[in-house]
Design a protein around this nucleic acid. Sequence first.
DNA 1: TCGAGCATGTAAATGGTTACATGATTGC
DNA 2: GCAATCATGTAACCATTTACATGCTCGA
Lengths: 176, 176
Amino acid sequence: MNLETVILGFLNMEPMSGYDLSKRIDSSVGFFWHATHPQIYGTLKKMIADGYVTFDHEIQESGPARKVYTITGEGKQFLLEQLPTIEPHLVKFPLLVTMFLGSELGLEFWRKALVDQIEEQEEMLQVYYTILKEIPKVGSSQDLGGYLRKRTLDFGIDYQKFFIKWLKHTLKEIKQ
Amino acid sequence: MNLETVILGFLNMEPMSGYDLSKRIDSSVGFFWHATHPQIYGTLKKMIADGYVTFDHEIQESGPARKVYTITGEGKQFLLEQLPTIEPHLVKFPLLVTMFLGSELGLEFWRKALVDQIEEQEEMLQVYYTILKEIPKVGSSQDLGGYLRKRTLDFGIDYQKFFIKWLKHTLKEIKQ
DNA sequence: TCGAGCATGTAAATGGTTACATGATTGC
DNA sequence: GCAATCATGTAACCATTTACATGCTCGA
């Protein structure tokens, strides 16, 4: 899975601009995939050349014309080829690596670091709760898409809870 | 945090070769940081130029001479500067992204995909349990390093359990 | 004898971040 | 007036992967 596939997946829901893609990716799968705007604009350019997307200018009263991208037949075909091959996940987790390597930083450092982390992660959890309230309830049990999307949000929330619990447990044991 | 810092952290425990680093990183923080061997050899080369490490040839009866790298004073200073700044974690999690984007793949696909994932993740869990049995019990409560390292392994195990539970729950709900 | 593990590396390509660059609108 | 949001993009650099390249040893 690469950014091309992710972008095609979103354009497969509805046509949108590079700016929209950036916001949408961030606020939905942001926890599972991160992409910056230069990366998105660059990839869209490449995908035009590949014939996976087309675009139309959407003139606005103010500011530059939005480029609204639409997935093509070829794009859709590519998407459906790519999606089923689920690759293993990649992680860079500096906190845990630092824990493994950084006992020299001392007890006081770790106490404070853990307190800070707990605070940060609890803020993140609140953000997810807010999103949860905003999404529509999954209606019919026939709606696989709605169910799967809600389940990814559940993952974010439950993971966050798990992580906070682990952090608090570690802090408690370090304190005594 | 970058690979330089990770390598320096390991060389700060004991001098070792690029090959050793590759194995050690993989079997300890592999879950939190991944590095391939060309990356490690390349980074070591750069770090020699920067004066963060030195090396000695260790002649063997057979095969090429091992290059055993040792951290320098400058390297140690750089390490202690870098370690305390804990950066946010980066994740690429194709399974969850695919769930968000891939309802078109259909119920049957997802049933099978989840069953496969559960199997894979349960195998990984067994691997972590094996490592757990092999590491020495954390002795004195004074041993901060031992405690923190054990705690990173706990994270791996508890995360794996959490993930499997989430997968099984999803499979159950998808089945009916 | 064949594959796995030990042990080193280079080269090309791809992927990703950071900084630079522009300019309008809206709300405080 | 200033910050945030909308909206586009380029260029330079840095990080990472994949393929290529070599050669020895040990056990099945």
